[in-house]
């Protein structure tokens, strides 16, 4: 018998989001097929990996991952540079933990300054996430956008109740925003509608559907993302065509199954390899369901995921 290989048909396409200045820029998105289904449609840009960099030394990382960064913990610039040159990060995801009123209440000016310093010291695009109350994050992002004009920074995040300040600042200074939704396709769409009604161009938006890690609700995340991608590609729903970012690393490295050592839990096996598996399986799950940008932590997990992306595309 001759077998006609069946194919899905696609009517839509993911937006192309440009990150970084022209000389150091990377594009994500643009695909016209389900993740890795390159036999069905064009996937012009590979998913990228951003490695996390914090503005302060993290206190709760398990030793099996902190040991790779402990020499640079007190310097975000060195941390970012090491993540790129030694661990192969495609981008840096700067986490501003000190802006939180409970953790230092750093001023927007200082936060913008750190962001600028890190950005100027690396040859890769920058993603920046705030922490703490949304009002503070918005103030900080406004300043960051102003101080990093025309840099195509990706700024996280905006929510349904708090998007105007950050979106306006992104528009005014040519940066991008991350739209957060709680694993909810309808809220994701609603927020994209609000943002585009503000006249923020659709190709300046990435969606963060709130990542959940292996064993802690990853299936909800998987299905929410798969539904977003299907709506975007098969139903040509413009308000779901934004690339997806998965801020997954913190969800991996805080759980018991990764933090406990083998002495306490012999039935869970070697802690470091277990942690790497926990991160790679979670990341691959995000990739298979549609993420375009992964925020990762363990260098060996980064290495394996990079290799798999390359092999599958």
């Amino acid at each position: 018998m001759s077998f006609q290989v069946p194919k899905n048909t696609y009517t839509g396409k993911i937006n192309v989001l440009k990150l970084g200045k022209d000389n150091t820029g990377i594009s994500v998105g643009g695909e016209a097929a389900l993740p890795f289904y390159s036999f069905e449609g064009e996937i012009p840009n590979k998913p990228i990996i951003a490695i996390e960099v914090y503005d302060t030394k993290p206190s709760d990382w398990p030793q099996v991952v902190s040991k790779y960064y402990s020499d640079v913990f007190d310097d975000p610039v060195k941390w970012a540079q090491k993540s790129i040159s030694e661990y192969g990060a495609d981008a840096i995801c700067l986490k501003l933990s000190k802006i939180n009123p409970d953790a230092g209440d750093m001023s927007p000016e200082d936060a913008a300054e750190i962001t600028k310093t890190v950005r100027e010291s690396i040859s890769r695009p920058l993603i920046v996430y705030g922490t703490g109350p949304m009002e503070k994050i918005a103030e900080v992002m406004k300043k960051i956008s102003e101080k990093n004009k025309d840099s195509n920074i990706l700024m996280g995040w905006v929510e349904e109740d708090n998007y105007k300040t950050t979106a306006a600042a992104a528009m005014a200074y040519n940066n991008n925003v991350i739209a957060l939704n709680p694993l909810d396709v309808n809220i994701a769409k609603q927020l994209n509608i609000l943002l585009t009604q503000l006249e923020l161009p659709a190709d300046r938006i990435a969606m963060d559907p709130s990542s959940s890690g292996l064993g802690y609700g990853i299936e909800y995340c998987y299905s929410a993302m798969e539904r977003l991608k299907i709506a975007a590609l098969m139903q040509d729903d413009k308000m779901t065509q934004m690339p997806i970012i998965s801020n997954i690393a913190p969800e991996i490295w805080k759980v018991k199954e990764v933090k406990e050592n083998e002495e306490n839990y012999p039935q869970w096996g070697n802690q470091e390899e277990r942690g790497i598996n926990w991160e790679t399986i979670s990341c691959m799950s995000m990739l298979l369901s549609g993420t375009n940008i992964l925020v990762m932590r363990h260098p060996k997990a980064v290495n394996i995921i990079k290799e798999f992306i390359k092999e599958l595309l």
Binding site: Q267, W268, G269, Q271, E273, N277
Partner: peptide, 9 residues
Amino acid sequence: HQNIFPLLV
């Protein structure tokens, strides 16, 4: 264990 446990989960 470190391989099979995450897979089973």
